[in-house]
Write a protein that binds this DNA or RNA. Structure first.
Length: 483
RNA sequence: GCCCCCAUCGUCUAGUGGCCUAGGACAUCUGGUUCUCAGCCAGAAAACCGGGGUUCGAUUCCCCGUGGGGGUACCA
């Protein structure tokens, strides 16, 4: 074994969308390859042609790209590797490591049913067939599968996360490697493909741990070097069971549409089942690569906590460079009908300042959009709770807001420094605490109870829009808003 | 049934025999915060699954139990 650079792969089957569990597996493979200067390959494992779809393949590519997990080589089967799989199966057959089995699926099913308490194991009856009889029956066109013969002994390996794992071979079943229609079974296909792609480290979910001894035996029978293995813990839902649709969003695309940012998703997923040690938690992709080490890989299954994911997304929203955040927010702003890409571009500086102002209080891109609405022209909807709380006495609120409007209309300088004393004096003259003025004003300007500081809102909104919003609030209070 | 894997606050985790009166983060609760909070600050509550060993000394090493998970297909 040379110290050549490692080659890893992520090999999802295209039978659905990219699942967060799969994404996490892909992420660790990617992290390892990027950290240790290896190659990260993406292989679409469509051994099961019936369930595989092109749509799934596209969804996987899209999910991977969104997460920023770039791959160095790509393999999509489309049956192209079938011939190699068959060649490997036949090589095993002629080398005597496998044998033809004429038992039909129906017969097997029947025997399984009558076996004691689910303790079924193939009895090797076809392995006891005389070689010439087997050859004769095959030549006569009788359908058969090819079964791998499990040798005696123990199969063990040094797992990168579990250390030594051992399986007594007597507990393994002679498994089928080639179906009666000459298509390969998963265990053969993976080994054959991993050999062809010269994979040196197989990193996958630990639900594959019991496939590993079978695959190691296959490598040996094929006379090929056995790669290293790393079996990652699973991700469970909040009820402790394997993550599934019941737990809500499980496709990475769902999170994209929920306003999550890939940096946060990657960060969160990396910390599910891995730790850099110490207290560091909010990390960029580059820091993750820098810090990554298989020593921090966890053995225990982790529960997916959407709340922490949201919190982490908020952290990334606040910490990432504005220029990186902008491309995530703009499509959502446009989709909400607040502006066009062109209009945002014309006022880019002001737009970025707005994002900077809003992102602190946001956990998702959707939160940013919701908070951004008041700063763009167009009628506001007043939040019910906000109205109930701060515009309780409608006429009084209207009067107060009218005074604010009058005062602001005469402001010589539209800056936070000038506006603050102006409004505070007005509050004093009106005999109300400043908060009793700022809150109704906040509702008038934003329709919400939560916003940045009131002077920052005023400045960001600009004189014209701000005055217009206050005037609309006054007429709403005196007109349509009245019951 | 059989085989394999796993086990620190509710959750993600730090911890590699004495630094542990077990640390951090999310969530929860409390208090503070020139105007709001979903922001910020301060604080509280909250865990080494059980039993045996090994050792001067176990969260840490070993064994057994218990619990959880995975596998046991002509699925992947």
């Amino acid at each position: 074994m040379t110290s050549a650079s490692p080659r890893l792969r992520f090999a999802p089957s295209p039978t659905g969308y990219l699942h967060v569990g799969g994404a996490r597996t892909a992420l660790f493979n990617w992290l390892y390859a990027r950290k240790f200067g290896g190659a990260f390959l993406l292989r679409i494992e469509d051994t099961d042609r019936a369930r595989s779809t092109d749509e799934s393949t596209r969804a996987i590519f899209e999910g991977m790209r969104w997460l920023g997990l770039d791959w160095d080589e790509e393999v999509v089967h489309q049956g192209a590797n079938l011939e190699r799989h068959q060649t490997d199966a036949r090589a095993l057959l002629s080398a005597g490591a496998a044998y033809r089995c004429f038992c039909t699926a129906a017969e097997l099913e029947e025997r399984r049913k009558t076996a004691e308490r689910g303790a079924f194991k193939y009895d090797r009856r076809c392995d006891r067939l005389a070689p010439d009889e087997a050859a004769r029956r095959a030549a006569a066109g009788e359908p058969f599968t090819i079964r791998f013969r499990i040798p005696d002994g123990t199969t063990e390996w040094e797992d990168m996360v579990h250390e030594r794992v051992a399986f007594p071979n007597k507990d393994l079943d002679d498994f089928v490697i080639l179906r009666s229609d000459a298509t390969p079974i998963y265990n053969l296909a993976v080994v054959s493909d991993d050999i062809a792609m010269r994979i040196t480290l197989v990193m996958r979910g630990d639900d594959h741990i019991s496939n590993t001894p079978k695959q190691i035996l296959l490598y040996r029978a094929l006379g090929q070097p056995v790669p290293q293995f790393a079996h990652l813990p699973m991700i469970h839902g909040t009820d402790g069971r394997k993550l599934s649709k019941r737990h809500g969003a499980t496709a990475v695309g769902d999170y994209q549409h929920m306003g999550l940012v890939p940096e946060a998703m990657v960060n969160f997923l990396a910390l599910l089942g891995w730790s850099p040690g110490g207290d560091r938690e909010v990390l960029t992709r580059a820091e993750l690569v820098e810090l990554f080490s298989p020593a921090g890989l966890q053995k225990k299954a982790a529960i997916f906590d959407p709340q922490k994911l949201e919190w982490m997304n908020g952290q990334h929203l606040s910490l990432m460079p504005l220029a990186e955040l902008e491309p995530y927010v703009t499509p959502a702003i446009v989709a909400a009908g607040l502006a066009t890409p062109e209009s945002l571009d014309r006022e880019r500086e002001r737009y970025l300042a707005l994002l900077d102002l809003l992102r602190v209080r946001a956990r998702t891109v959707d939160d940013v959009v919701r908070q951004a609405r008041p700063y763009f022209p167009g009628a506001l909807e007043y939040d019910e709770a906000a109205v109930a709380k701060h515009w309780k006495e409608r006429e009084a609120a209207a009067t107060l807001l009218q005074d604010v409007h009058a005062a602001l209309a005469e402001a010589a300088d539209w800056s936070a420094e000038a506006l603050e004393p102006l409004l505070r004096e007005l509050a004093e003259r009106s005999g109300v605490a400043s908060g009793k003025l700022f809150q109704p004003l906040r509702v008038a300007l934003t329709g919400l109870t939560v916003s940045p500081g009131i002077f920052e809102v005023l400045v960001m909104m600009g004189r014209e829009l701000a005055l217009e919003r206050i005037a609309s609030a006054v007429s709403w209070l005196r007109g349509a808003g009245r019951r």
